[in-house]
Structure formats: C-alpha cells, structure tokens
Design a protein around this nucleic acid. Structure first.
Lengths: 159, 159
DNA sequence: TAGACATATTCAAAAACTTGAATAATTATC
DNA sequence: GATAATTATTCAAGTTTTTGAATATGTCTA
C-alpha cells in the first residue's frame, strides 16, 4: 500500500545508493535499505549487499565510502601501498606517497564520494588536499588512515 | 559442421565489429556478417543491424564509421551543426567551426575509428587535423564533408 | 564462548535481454 | 514508378540477470 512505491532499474538504484552514502552517514546495509525506502525504492538487504559489492563501496569503521568505478583509473585499494604518511595541518592534509604515485593518490582522493575534500594538488611524492576546515581535515586524515591500515578489500569482489 | 565456430558474447562481438569496420572497408550489413563469419563468429543480419545501432555506427556513402560510445562526450551527430568549413591543404585538414566548438569537434575526430588522422590540434574555432599523406587528407575531408551534408542519423536509435 | 549484529550466499521464481527467422519498411537504381 | 538491394522490426524461443526469502558465515562484545 505504499503511496510512493517507486520502481527503478538496477543502475538507477545503484546511482541512488552512491548518492545516499556520500550525502548521509550510513553505517549498515540496513541503513541503506531504509534510506532507499525513504526515496521510495524498496529492496531487500541481500540486494544492497550485492549492490555495494558491485559498486566497489568499502566500509571503513562505521562509514561506507564510495569510489565510483572508472575503467582505467586506480582504485581505492592502492592507497595502502602508495601512501606512506598522512599529516593534517590546519585545513590541509599532507599525504606523503611513494615516489611517482602522488598523482594516482590525488586522483583516487578526488574521486572518493563523500570525502570532505575541496581539492588536491599532487607533486611527485606529495599530495596536498584542502579541506573546508580544520575539523574536516582531521576527519579525512583519520578516515584515509583507516583505509590504509584496514586493507579491507572491497565489500565483495568487483566485476 | 564449422570447424571454427566461435561462440562469443554480445560485447565481444560488438568490439570485433568496431575493429572490422575500422580496418576493412565494409559497405553493407551483409559484408559485416561475412567478415564476422571469417573470424568464426556467425550471426544473422538482424543482429548486425541491432549491433550497429547500439554501437552508434553510421554509414556515410558506402562506408561504415564507428564512433565508440563515450558517456559524456559529444557524438558524431554534432559535426553538421559545429563544422562550418573543411579545407584539405596538403596532408593537413583545416576545419572551421562555430566559435568555441573546435575542442568538441577535435575530440569527435579523434574518436572516430578508421579515420586516417594522425592527430589534431584545436583552437577556438579551428581544428587542424594531420593526415599521414595528402591523399588521406582529401579522403578524410570528403568523408567528414559527407557526414556534415548527410545529416544521417545513426543507423538506428541508440539507447 | 554465547549471543547479537552485520554481511554474504544459496536457491528458486520472475523479469529482462538476446537472438534468428520471417517480414516489413526504406532506399537506391533503372 | 517498378524492382532490387539494404536495413529495420516483429515475434517467439532460449538464455541470462535480477531479486527476495531464507540461511550461512563472519565479527564483535560482554
């Protein structure tokens, strides 16, 4: 009896999921199911599980991070091996990387949805990421720090 | 009883078609069917018709032209409205375009498979395309000229 | 380790996609 | 305009995808 039951296809739903998890702070698949329901899209948890896996979404601590899948580009999984150090300094986060990988790292950072980063500049082995404020910078540094430590492989195998 | 009957999926077949029509000079769907058969892939003409439509392949005169479908980018259908003039000069083809559209035109030219173009440079309203030799330049100029005159919509509606 | 919580997987049904044969529609040629 | 050549569409079948329910497998926390 849902007055607003929407019927969308898989691709649309997955895009919606990307948007939802980057806008809100969704910590469980159940949260995602409910958020979708709020948008009028009703699916089972099993479907969300599969969607997150296909989208390459990873969970860091209590938060889902979406890295839109781009054919050629590096995935978020390169961060642990490329990033040597992370230092928040005011509203700037300094990433020390293995030589030559700064560009790839900046590219990944640019593409992670929901990361509070305004922009990045990459040198040879250093990336400067600008956050809107000091708190955000700290938050980002912690998050990426977790990613590098976690070495969590994507929530399932992608493609 | 084909000793070399290959069974490939749709995506593989469509990539093969792109390659075939950019390498050889295929003028009809029947030709494409036969070229595919030569590679061990047997399909009906109806399938080729649908494939060409999905691939955004267009037919100019007696030749198929493939423009690999890229999500964001402009399609070959913009050429008639963007290109004002085409002038081959030795092995260079000069495209005069509406102001500001040169970049888009060059991008399209770069992506058309089977076009004998070595490279392009775009200004504001001018594109210089370098062909391997004078004959190729003339050929390209004629072909694109036909495209602009033809205003043929893609061989079917895409997506 | 037990018990909760979170996520992944299995299985079967439904929906969507793919395809060739036949045919219709379109385009060129005379 | 008739005919031939080329391309598009309809239809039905076979195949693949998608999905939810149920269930299994982690993964914490006390």
């Amino acid at each position: 009896m849902d007055a607003t039951k929407l019927n969308v296809d898989k691709a649309t739903r997955q895009n919606l999921i990307l948007r939802l998890i980057s806008e809100r702070d969704l910590g469980t698949q159940h949260d995602v199911v409910q958020a979708l329901a709020g948008e009028g899209v009703e699916v089972a948890q099993a479907t969300v599980s599969r969607d997150l896996a296909e989208l390459g979404v990873i969970k860091v601590g209590n938060r889902y991070l979406a890295l839109p899948h781009e054919p050629g580009a590096a995935g978020i999984e390169v961060l642990p091996s490329f990033v040597v150090g992370i230092t928040p300094a005011q509203n700037i986060i300094v990433f020390n990387t293995r030589d030559g990988t700064a560009g790839a790292v900046a590219n990944v950072l640019d593409r992670v949805k929901g990361l509070k980063i305004v922009g990045t500049v990459a040198g040879q082995d250093t990336v400067l990421a600008v956050a809107p404020d000091n708190a955000a910078a700290k938050e980002v540094a912690d998050l990426i720090g977790d990613v590098c430590r976690a070495r969590t492989r994507p929530a399932g195998s992608i493609e």
